[in-house]
Amino acid sequence: MSDSQCPPITLYTSAICGYCVAAKNFLKSKGLEWQEVRIDTDPDARERMMALARRTSVPQIFIGDIHVGGYSDLMAMHREGKLEALLSGGGA
């Protein structure tokens, strides 16, 4: 799957987050690219993430405008076969 058909992926992360690293490694294994937004170095980004996700933990993952959730949510969606449809521009 090429990134040209994939909606933009945004990861809200912090430096000391093992699940953030795991999410990035998973996306990299799928050949995907993402925009990383560090909330530990940007207070405005943290506020934006909390407003969008209504959660304070990281990572918070968005594919297009759809809030996937954290790493566990991403992996559950992958196991259920719903992630590929979302990545190809379909709904969850």
Rank of each mutant, 00 (worst) to 15 (best):
L32H: 06
I9S: 11
S2N: 15
R38M: 12
D42I: 09
R55M: 07
S4V: 12
Y71W: 10
R38T: 02
I9L: 06
W34V: 10
R48E: 14
L27Q: 03
V68K: 03
K30S: 07
K24P: 06
A22K: 13
S14Q: 14
M50C: 03
E80V: 00
V58T: 15
H67S: 10
D65R: 02
G31N: 12
M49I: 04
A45C: 03
S72G: 00
Y71S: 01
M1L: 11
P59H: 06
F62T: 05
A53M: 07
F62R: 01
A76G: 01
M75Y: 00
Y71F: 15
I16W: 15
I61Y: 08
R55Q: 13
Q35D: 15
R48T: 13
G70I: 07
K28L: 12
E84H: 11
W34I: 09
I66K: 08
G81E: 00
N25S: 08
F62D: 10
M75S: 03
S88D: 12
S57V: 10
D44S: 04
M50G: 00
Y71K: 01
I61L: 13
F26R: 03
L32D: 09
C17Q: 01
I9T: 06
V68E: 12
T13L: 03
I16Q: 11
A85K: 08
C20Y: 10
A92H: 08
G91N: 06
G31Q: 08
N25W: 00
A76V: 01
Q5L: 15
V68F: 14
V68G: 12
K30T: 02
T56D: 13
H67N: 14
Q5P: 02
I9Q: 04
L87R: 03
G69P: 09
I61A: 08
R46G: 13
L11V: 00
G31F: 06
L74I: 02
I66D: 05
V21H: 05
G31E: 10
L27P: 01
Y19L: 04
S29T: 10
V58D: 11
T13A: 11
K28H: 12
P43F: 12
V21M: 05
R79N: 13
F62N: 05
S4I: 08
T13N: 01
Y19M: 04
S4G: 00
S4C: 03
I61K: 01
D73P: 05
V21N: 05
T10V: 15
D3T: 09
L83T: 05
I66P: 00
F62I: 07
D42F: 12
F26W: 11
T41L: 13
D73L: 05
S14K: 14
L87A: 12
A22D: 00
M49S: 11
